[in-house]
Design a protein around this nucleic acid. Structure first.
Length: 488
RNA sequence: GGCCCGUUCGUCUAGCGGUUAGGACACCGCCCUCUCAAGGCGGAGAUCACGGGUUCGAAUCCCGUACGGGCUACCA
């Protein structure tokens, strides 16, 4: 057990997003790799936009992905609470610390006035941050006004003469920010709640976080946060900033680009292990050639050194390919477990029916596994195996059944199949293989006629295996039903 | 405006001074074949954003420029 402590701190203002999921995966993998502790903290400081439903959805998505946390909601831990909304006492205490060391001061400037000034300065070409109006207030006077109930925020007093803020980002290397470019930002709002930059640092310090692995969008906040760590007298964690995930148009990934929430991918039939594998690859590589790896392999090999610096475009096609790989490589029994919910939801399987049809389903699994990229594709592919009758697609009828020889093919196939005693794919194939030659037709012509009769379409699962699964009686019924549609 | 970050095939990436710039997805062709897939083999695709340096030698180091992106909130 190492003393590495990392956290993933989502804000429950929405569902778990692809970008957040990747951050979570990296944090999780980093912790597990080094035998450290992975903490989940809910940054719900924004009461307007945070909801319990979102929190629940995020936890669900984390569990679905297989990202288990050692401390956090539902599991507890001795550095909690793990919801920022419940940590007001910590923030108040931290503020007292800063006040005591004169590292923070009250600001009575109104938000409206500040915004107006900001607009003006920017229009004129140069805004250098809060002008520190209240920094020079007489302390006694400031205290008197604050005690009198005058609305005020608390700002960090950026130390006079503080030199450059330099830190070594684990993925970007040494970064330098001039302290002069930082203004005295707000730590505590006039309603008494902490801002993100304050709450986050207080929590990271309080929870003993050693490495902060997070999105690139926080990079510019880092020097501010370092100042807070310093003012608090807390050790500064190692920072690692991950680049954004972009859409195909190079813009930051958003709903416009299609599915972006983890649970949406789940609902579309993407496997958790494939999603984790894919997301891990968006900004990290195991080596120069490995693209497929298990969670354990990810953990065993994950290091911050191999995290890339440049933004990555999310490619749904590659995700699908990877998902297909996972589906194909999954043992039949496992795949059946994944298939059943989809079959039940589609009404193809009654609840409880799955167990008794288990052997049949396990025969089906290898047939579909090499043809689907997502579980979602299962139902349309197998529907004809379940339903009692099929309707023949118009195009299939025109293209296949109305061809000369189709009728004879169906008759001959029916005759041959009727004589099959042991109804299994190999025997079915053997008998059907003899039909084309007897009729002087090409195998393809005969098989396609049978396929259309039995599945209603020109494209289906492999014929002989399908017939085996449909059963002899239903097969013969379908051949007969299609017969009137067929040309001689 | 200011301050930061980024830029290798269409996409994800390997590369950390000397390589025919490697792999994967997608794409194209061939093979296999009862359709569709899967699979096998092969192909095309990157003047390493651009311009200057440093060096015997640069995708790799330095400086500019361009183009993206982030922060600059009493959002996170």
């Amino acid at each position: 057990m190492s003393d590495v402590r990392v956290r993933f701190a989502p804000s429950p203002t929405g569902h778990l997003h692809i970008g957040g999921a990747r951050t979570a995966i990296y944090n999780w993998a980093f912790a597990r790799h080094g035998g450290g502790t992975f903490i989940l903290r809910v940054d719900d400081t924004d009461p307007e936009r945070s909801t319990p439903e979102n929190t629940a959805a995020i936890l669900r998505a984390m569990r679905w992905l297989g990202l288990d946390w050692d401390e956090g909601p539902e599991v507890g831990g001795d550095r909690g609470p793990y919801f920022q909304a419940q940590r007001a006492a910590s923030y108040a205490q931290a503020l007292e610390t800063l006040k005591a060391s004169d590292a923070a001061y009250p600001c009575f400037c109104s938000a409206e006035r500040l915004e107006a000034a900001r607009e003006r300065a920017r229009a004129e070409g140069g805004y250098a941050g809060y002008p520190r109006t209240c920094r020079s207030l007489d302390p006694a006077e400031a205290r008197r006004r604050a005690d009198a109930g005058e609305p005020h925020t608390w700002r960090l007093k950026v130390p006079e003469g503080r030199g450059d803020i330099v830190f070594d980002d684990a993925v970007r290397g040494e970064l330098t920010f001039s302290a002069a470019s930082l203004d005295d930002f707000v730590l505590v709002r006039s309603d008494g709640t902490p801002t993100y930059n304050f709450a986050s640092v207080v929590d990271d310090a309080g929870m003993g976080i050693t490495h902060v692995i997070r999105g690139d969008d926080h990079l510019s906040n880092t020097p501010r946060q370092i100042l807070v760590f310093e003012a608090l007298g807390s050790p500064i964690p190692v920072f690692a900033h991950l680049s954004m995930i972009l859409g195909a148009d190079g813009k930051r990934l958003s709903k416009r680009h299609g599915a972006t929430s983890v649970e949406q991918f789940r609902d579309e039939g993407i496997l958790a292990e494939a999603l984790v594998n894919y997301l891990a690859l968006l900004g990290w590589s195991l080596d120069d050639r490995t693209t497929i790896f298990t969670r354990d392999e990810l953990v065993a090999n994950f290091t911050l050194e191999r995290v890339g610096r440049n933004p990555a475009v999310f490619d749904p096609e590659k995700l699908e390919w990877l998902d297909g790989v996972y589906i194909r490589e999954m043992p039949a029994a496992d795949l059946v477990d994944r298939m059943v919910p989809w079959l039940e939801a589609a009404g193809l399987l009654a609840s409880g029916e799955a167990e008794q049809r288990r052997p049949w389903l396990e025969e089906l699994a290898p047939l579909v596994s090499e043809r689907m990229k997502r579980l979602e594709e299962l139902v349309p592919m197998v529907r004809f195996l379940f339903e009692s009758r099929v309707s023949v697609e118009e195009a299939a009828r025109a293209k296949v059944l109305e061809k000369e020889g189709a009728g004879r093919s169906l008759d001959a196939a029916a005759g041959a199949l009727a004589a099959v005693s042991s109804w299994e794919a190999s025997a079915i194939e053997e008998s059907l293989r003899r039909v084309p030659e007897a009729l002087g037709l090409k195998p393809k012509a005969v098989f396609q006629a049978v396929r259309v009769a039995v599945s209603g379409t020109t494209v289906s699962l492999p014929l002989f295996e399908s017939l085996a699964l449909i059963g002899k009686e239903r097969t013969l019924e379908r051949l007969g039903a299609a017969r009137p549609m067929a040309a001689e």
